[in-house]
Amino acid sequence: MSDFDWLFFIEVLVGGLLSGVMYSLVAIGFVLIYKTSGVLNFAQGAMLLFAALTFVSLTERGVPFALAFAITFAIMVVIGIAIERTVLRPLTNKPPITLFMATLGLSYVIEGAAQLIWGTQVHGLDLGIEDLPFDVGGVFISQFDIFAAVVAAGMVAALSAFFRYTRIGLGFRAVADDQFAALAIGLRLPWIWATVWAAAGLVALVAGLLWGARVGVQFSLSLIVLKALPVLVLGGFDSILGAIVGGLLIGATEKLAEVYIGEYFGGGIEGWFAYVVALAFLLVRPSGLFGQKLVERV
């Protein structure tokens, strides 16, 4: 193994970890909603697309960055609350599969609406960060990746602080723990759900911008949900920490697998290797790395 190129290995690993951050960002949107309402919101990808598309369309019409961001965020909040009111609330107490089907249908409605409003062409999105590699001790790291990682980390820190130190955050954690008890002690669940959907909308917006800048704002953007699923399987559907660690693991494994064992499969394994990892993981730990931390003494 003397001819093993460690520098190259590290470069691939870091690149993988950084792209994993982008997966985490998408996965966190799922976790927020799943934790509080037990719904696997398949429409998260469509929300991400809708957010990115709205933002790009606004900036293309000359709206400044900050204003476009604020407007898009407001729209996402309204959409989130509307979904909670019109789709999920009437379906309260229905089996999980019904809710899942509802969000699956919803994702097509949102995509259709996005298409109707903003058209179908691909948009470029320039966040003003150039994707130039720079050199850290011989390892080349993409500037954009670092930027994305910093944004994601900031976002996670802000969300964590919100849930830890605010009252509505405490309510959120209570609902995530035991919805029925939360109802019985007088927490206003609709308010908490609305907040969570707003937070998921913000996550969708940020993830949409980063992914949009990376691959262009187009309709395949909504398929990013499929990238988030292995992350969720690995990290657990109800853990924000799990989403982060899961994203990093998937990102790193994907890239390393592509570079080191891809050639034995004729290359291009990056697209499906995450699922292999997730499936293997399901056999060992079905609730994920951090899923459903059981704190109980009987």
Binding site: A174, A181, V295, E296
Partner: peptide, 8 residues
């Protein structure tokens, strides 16, 4: 069955 929020 008490229904405390276990992780709080």
């Amino acid at each position: 069955g008490r229904h405390c929020f276990r992780s709080l």
